[in-house]
Design a protein around this nucleic acid. Sequence first.
RNA 1: GCUCGAGUGGUGGAAUUGGUAGACACGUUGGACUUAAAAUCCAAUGACCAUUGCGGUCGUGCGGGUUCAAGUCCCGCCUCGAGUACCA
Length: 937
Amino acid sequence: MGYNFLEIEKKWQDYWAKNQTFKAENNSKLPKYYVLDMFPYPSGAGLHVGHPLGYIASDIYARYKRHKGFNVLHPQGYDSFGLPAEQYAIQTGQHPNITTQTNISRYREQLDRMGFSFDWSREVRTSQADYYKWTQWIFLLLFDSYYCKKANSAKPLTELIAHLEQKGNQDLDAVCDDDINSFNSSDWSSFTYQKQQKILLKYRLAYLSETEVNWCPELGTVLANDEIVNGVSERGGFQVTKKKMKQWSMRIGAYAERLLQGLNTIDWPESLKEMQRNWIGKSIGANVRFDIQNENGTIEVFTTRPDTLFGVTFMTLAPEHDLVKVITTKDQKEEVAAYVEASAQRSERDRMSDVKTISGVFTGAYALHPFTKQTIPIWIGDYVLAGYGTGAVMAVPCGDQRDYDFAKHFNIPIRNIFDGADISKEAFIEKGNTQITDSEFLNGLAYKEAMASVIERLEKDGSGEGTINYRLRDAIFSRQRYWGEPIPVFYKNGIPFGLKPENLPLTLPEVEQYLPTPEGAPPLGNATSWAWDTVSEKVVSNSQINETTIFPLELNTMPGWAGSSWYFNRYMDSNNPDVFVSKEAVTYWQDVDLYLGGSEHATGHLLYSRFWQKFLFDLDLLPVDEYAKKLINQGMILGSSAFVYRKKGTKEYISKNLTEGIEVEPIRVDISLVNTSNELNIEGLKKWQPQFAEATFVLEQDVYFVGREVEKMSKSKYNVVSPDLICEEYGADTLRMYEMFLGPLEQAKPWNTAGISGVHSFLKKLWRLYHPNDQFSVSKEPASKESLKSLHQTIKKVTEDIENFSFNTCISSFMICVNELTAQKCNEKEILEPLAVLLAPFAAHFSEELWQHLGNSSSISKASFPIYEPKFLLESSKNYPVSFNGKMRFTIELSLTLKPQEIEELILKDERTQQQLQGRVPKKVIIVLGKIINIVG
RNA sequence: GCUCGAGUGGUGGAAUUGGUAGACACGUUGGACUUAAAAUCCAAUGACCAUUGCGGUCGUGCGGGUUCAAGUCCCGCCUCGAGUACCA
């Protein structure tokens, strides 16, 4: 009996499940460690070999930490609301819940097969009412909070109301919509209840607003930017238009600065932090107000270069800017109207893809320079975006390339205010030490001082102030979809009210049709009985509501990121029906110590979840305001698609190396029809799809060679490799180790089974070493010095490498160790015992089996990790190996005069060397001119 | 365009952060065992030259530089990947 992985793996998976080996306790004297994976969306295609990469890595670390004496929380769950299940429901009428359940069971089966040490007793599913109850609850908290800039924290809305009652909105420093007029306390009390609620909505962190969205009439839904390809919907290819809609939004902008600063406190990949920084897009500058000539009012602009204020020769407004209508002169009216109309027609995609075309039109109006009072022509141009800054810019052609191009195009004069700069060809955009000239009080100053000076002056004159702008937009929270969390809100006279928390969850109703209603309302509009039996009661219980009336519920659902923005906290206490997470649980677990997931979530999930965490922290519901101390992005495992080449317009397929000079269309074929030498199974292909049944093949050396291309693994590309087949053929332990051996964790790499036999034979080799004649056998004799040296070298290397998440080199170390032990014919218990524990995080089932053979009755996961003891390496070293750089002539000459003894003396004498060595034996000493230059060891 | 990241044998990838480049594995070649195959084990394997021995020369995308010493640091390019896109 050899290494029977199928039997061993089944046995231990059953054992772990039965004994709940990996259940984490919420109270323990052990230090805690929380290892989290980004939970998967259970898609119909099942897992492919790319999915488990991160799970394997986190599982290795979680198991390692258990051996190191930590109480490890390593949970898993499902992000189970989402579009594919809904699409499937639309096509087939099957309830998304059924699809989701089926997919989850399949995922669970696959995950179990790989031997992950998840604590399944804490599983969460975002689509389950006992989970989304709390998602809705958090929504209500956001709805009932505002952001106080003075405290730099979210606060309950009741505090805002108290302030408004006392002082109106005077002396209030809160984040809000920008269309609020000022009022005092008596104004406030004179407002109708209706009006008061409207004002409050402008402060709530979850608020309703008119937002421009990508509307697809055919699909009856709003699309995200990445669901639109070339101006039409990705799904179906339908026309997409701009539409203003009332949408729920989240004031994530209030947290922009804290989200930015928080990045400095967490150990996340620098590239990911950089992405978030860019996404938040902080820019420091000034708002400057220009009076309009012959007109009441001002134009406010945002600029990052207030130092160039004297270089302004025109201004540009976004076509959508409110003032356009007001200031345009009679003469220009027609032209301006036409331009505004034209740019409204252009989709954002158009405007983006066509950055080179310069367009604009003069309004006929003039602004006045705040200092010189000179007149400045006001233009309209679509290179200015309504949504950023103030929707208007002061154009400084000498210092900004776009302004420069615009000025050149329309023959607007350019003023050079940079001393000695050449602006004959392009703008001078450096911010260095170049002095500014021709700028009154700024003359002779450079960028930095000029900035400060201008801002000071603007603030004194009241025509502007230093300010900070963020690119980060508030996040739209409404989706016109069925398969998502219902938003727990109802309307009275158009004013939204939150349900009472005790009435949650507001469950998703049954509908006949998953499509929008004929009137264009979201799918929830199809619910005939929704809630009115169950919810009307709850609605009525709200004190503000007239009890006899029933009010409409919100028909939109929440976006995909709602449920995933707080799930990591739920795991800490996932079965608690009374709170989203208990104080005790969160006090013990605090935060995630290690979070693993893909970098594609950089500006989505990973930003929104940080936002919710900070919000819940502000309300004193969580102890920390960053939830993940360390994050690692595992690289994607890519597929290697196979292509056949059809000669254009024929049914003739040409082997890869013969296609040169022939016009061919590459067609993807299923990779199971291709072997590792890229030879095609032609008979298989003919059966695979009818289009190939009649095909003829042009071969080279009697075989058809396919082309290969590395791309994302996907069902539609026929390049998916399932882990089940690998487990069948080699076992889960081999799969786990091979995926790690493939290369560095963070790196993207194509899947390739070529090397898997190496990892598999490593396990077989180790198995054989302790199963001579197919019987388990260990020697009780003390181990040889050589074996101990091999073992401790491996302990040292593996421990270091696990800590650095360098799992690929760990596996190399194991292989070296086993090769050495085999060569020494070592089979001592003294070696095997620690080696089994060392290997346990990687080959979990394999180690359990050996552990049992060694006579242990409990799981190896309770064993403590072996400790490296330097003495085993020291004892076996007798001499200092010394090397010299053979290329250096004088080095050789000197070394010739030094005998090994003298070198040893030199080493012992040198204080710095001794410090550096700290008792270790040097591997190598570099000596130049009789001085120790460097020691390696 | 801008911002990050990466370029090492036939292949995946190591290299203790400036110290013998190519660990480990795949593949290839040769050998052992076997009637044979599978499995297993042993040896060779960066390139070129010399192989009657020792060996020698060149080599980490390209061109420079710093250093006793550079895959690693600095300057200038080239190629690929990711993110972002008129952000004032």
